[in-house]
Write a protein that binds this DNA or RNA. Structure first.
Lengths: 208, 208
DNA sequence: GTCTATAGGCTGATAGAC
DNA sequence: GTCTATCAGCCTATAGAC
């Protein structure tokens, strides 16, 4: 039965090379520059062959997103393992921004390009293995622990707070990717300022 | 001299109709669906004629962005006129999110699509009439007044705070446009939560 | 100024030979 | 499984007649 297995290995190898080439193109030239012809040229196959390994161009893009999301989770994982929930919250925020800034085109693809594709992807991930909102769940978990320890205002809606935290770090990344020089503050400083504001507020005295 | 003026009026009319058609297409089907052929069809001209009024497709897109930015400023203007700087800050944030959610494809075009185009546009606006960062300046102005009144932590960097505020509201809009159902909180609630957090903080007790 | 016609490109995807 | 050839379509922009 070694023959069938060797053939499977070879198939998987081609598939991996297609994805690798696609990554190289999409992450340097942007997703819109990702064409079947370019992929084929890079792996020295004909464009037609790609359809033996992927149903369509979109299937390739979906796969890139899936891998990208796994990479994002991996980037955030060390911070999400911190014992102190506050440290965890801060660490996840920093790691999230760092990941986005380090992988701009991937981040664009995953979170800024096509609404239909994005929601379909995370919906499918959520159904498959529950990882669809794992990044968000890490934030919510840290906030829940803070609430349980009495470190949040009583009655705080941790799910909504998690959404707000996510929106804030996403805002930093997507703003920096959209207009790199416009907010003059560098991403790291913006991140620290935002985290500090979210946790402690800008005003000297909380209103009643 | 009435003849030349009539001709100018006619030219301006065609130009306006081109922009109107472009807006209709781009704001319903998205910027990538904006083609010279579609514009021409909609105003019942040939595609070639468009080049008598605009240098290129990109020039039309630039004009849409310019108008869109003016519309954003107008949307924010009432809030920016509030006497109390804190109310102003809050009002600008709300108005910004409302504008983005009400004009999703325009917002995409202005702030999520092409980094090169975005920076070029706001750079040009800034040089032309200083309006390039008018929206940001309104935020910074309110924060400066708060600082002068002693309502911010002493030594606060208002420029950086303004950047952080902007990034936060941009995050709400762009996240909602990218994955409408993913953060379950609706945009308005997310906005209120975010503003509250930015001003007062999530934690019960500020750290030293 | 507006038209038709077209250059000169690109795209995703498929048919059929090998 | 991989190839070549091709379909059917899209695009921006221009040349030249009127």
């Amino acid at each position: 039965m070694g023959i069938a297995e060797r053939r499977d290995r070879e198939r998987a190898g081609v598939r991996a090379r297609i994805l690798e080439a696609s990554r190289a193109i999409a992450f340097t030239e942007g997703a819109s520059a990702l064409t079947m012809r370019k992929i084929a040229e890079r792996i020295e196959y004909s464009a037609a062959s790609l359809y033996q390994h992927f149903e369509s161009r979109e299937a390739i893009v979906r796969e890139l997103c899936r891998d990208g999301y796994a990479a994002l989770l991996a980037s955030v994982a060390p911070a999400a393992a911190a014992a102190d929930p506050l440290e965890r919250l801060i660490g996840i925020g920093r790691a999230y921004v760092r990941f986005g800034m380090a992988n701009p085109e991937l981040y664009r693809l995953m979170f800024m390009e096509d609404a239909a594709l994005t929601t379909a992807l995370y919906g499918a991930l959520e159904e498959a293995d529950g990882s669809g909102r794992a990044a968000l769940a890490a934030l919510a978990g840290a906030l829940d622990e803070l609430a349980a320890a009495g470190r949040l205002a009583p009655g705080a809606n941790t799910a909504r707070l998690a959404d707000a935290f996510w929106a804030a770090v996403h805002g930093i990344v997507s703003l920096k990717l959209a207009c790199p020089h416009f907010p003059e503050s560098p991403a790291e400083e913006l991140t620290e300022t935002t985290i500090t504001l979210l946790l402690h507020g800008a005003l000297t005295r909380p209103s009643p």
